[in-house]
Design a protein around this nucleic acid. Sequence first.
RNA 1: UGAGCAGACCAUGCGGUAGCGGAAACGUUAAGUUUACGAGGAAAGUCCGGGCAUCACAGAGCAGGAUAGCUGCUAACGGCAGCCGAGGGCGACCUUAGGGCAAGUGCAACAGAGAUAUACUGCCGUCCUCCGGGACGGUGAUGGUGGAAAGGCGGGGUAAGAGCCCACCAGAGUACAGGAGACUGUGCUGCUAUGUAAACCCUAUCCGAUGCAACGUCUAUUGGUACUGUGCGUCUCAACGUCUGCUCGGCGGACGUGCAGUAAUGGCGGCUUGAGCCUGUCGGCGACGGCAGGAGUAGAUAAAUUACCGCACACGACAGAACCCGGCUUAUCGGUCUGGUCAUAUC
RNA 2: CGAGGUGUGGCUCAGUUUGGUAGAGUACUACGUUCGGGACGUAGGGGCCGCAGGUUCAAAUCCUGUCACCUCGA
Length: 120
Amino acid sequence: MLYTEILNDNRDFLAAYKKGRFTACKYSVIYVRPNGCPFNRLGITAGKKVGNAVCRNRAKRLIRLAYRQNEAALPVGMDIVIVARAPICEVKSQIYCGYMQKYGSAEINRLFRSFPVGKK
RNA sequence: UGAGCAGACCAUGCGGUAGCGGAAACGUUAAGUUUACGAGGAAAGUCCGGGCAUCACAGAGCAGGAUAGCUGCUAACGGCAGCCGAGGGCGACCUUAGGGCAAGUGCAACAGAGAUAUACUGCCGUCCUCCGGGACGGUGAUGGUGGAAAGGCGGGGUAAGAGCCCACCAGAGUACAGGAGACUGUGCUGCUAUGUAAACCCUAUCCGAUGCAACGUCUAUUGGUACUGUGCGUCUCAACGUCUGCUCGGCGGACGUGCAGUAAUGGCGGCUUGAGCCUGUCGGCGACGGCAGGAGUAGAUAAAUUACCGCACACGACAGAACCCGGCUUAUCGGUCUGGUCAUAUC
RNA sequence: CGAGGUGUGGCUCAGUUUGGUAGAGUACUACGUUCGGGACGUAGGGGCCGCAGGUUCAAAUCCUGUCACCUCGA
């Protein structure tokens, strides 16, 4: 991934849930929060409600694929946490990637602009 | 041909495009390029057993836990193999926590006269009688209840009855024979013994604790707090700590102060060749063992095996390694092979 | 990786230790009460006790396996 590091600290997840903005769809929920770094950080959550280990792994792969394909369109300097929902297991990857390409990046850009610039 | 039993095995395949993980080679300040490799029969549940690591180890007793026919296999096991007993199936075959209530204690509702020892209705004898029956003694076959009524059934016997006696069956004890043993067979004694130990318990055997977030090692910061080691001073053999819990017993003396070291975080190691797999052969009924030959890189750390397309068909189930093995249990679309059995038909 | 607990009427829970009758509150139905409703009173229905085996004369209870959920420790 080009400008992206992995977000793996529990505090950062909690900060994204509490202080970030979010947008939701049928397959996933996206939390966004500026982090003040010259790169993005991506965290993926696939909880127990998604399914068994096979389903959770598949959900993580699909999200990672979708993020990789749309990475160029995203702004820089964000903490992004994507939470998988149960229906993502039964869907083809093109549908999810297409959704992310069409709406997801636009939503993230909109949320990014919605944060006050001076704060950053 | 149909039904059924046991065992073993496979787990969609091939091609293309893009991408991921560690490794090797090339290149090198680096970016990168190429190559081969990259989830399972259960990887799952974590129910047992072991390896490995650290800590503790003079020991003794009690408590606690596990196992429970016999012989073997194994590193070990609560696993497996063969056999014995019991039960089920016409059969192939399957199931089986299967020591001890003839040490002790407890429990057995309801029903029933009576539930671990008793006598309501009865039966028989003697006596009495107001002829309805009553008293005393014998008896435990009969009635109904119950899971269970004191071995079962038949005959003899008797006033009426009873293993009181006899035959057969069942159980117990004992002797002999066979077997490695569980046990089996035969003879004799002889009727005393309800069920429950997956009730407490007794008997025999086994069990140190913690778990790769173990543990080792390197490094940054804060701080003089905590811990460890050691030198000096003071006080005492009590308290405290530790040895799984308790008792005895063992080991460490405690406090103050000086010096040295350690740390939560991160990196690296542990981390994958192992009581392993396949083939042949020898020993063994078998589990398994010996010998010979052969093949063989998952090792991540928010965590890699993917996404999409095309073709074929049976239209693809359950499901994702996290220190490693041996088992057990559970989930599973379907398919293949081998060996027995029963029924029917034909020769 | 390890330790423990809970599954019982629609809902919340007793009963499991010490095996024999499944119970309480609430909800539901009917009747009474009231001018009518609520509250109250009386009566009633509703349970393969998570699932599958076993021990026992007899299992919600004892034992074994299994499924789901919850909690805790490192």
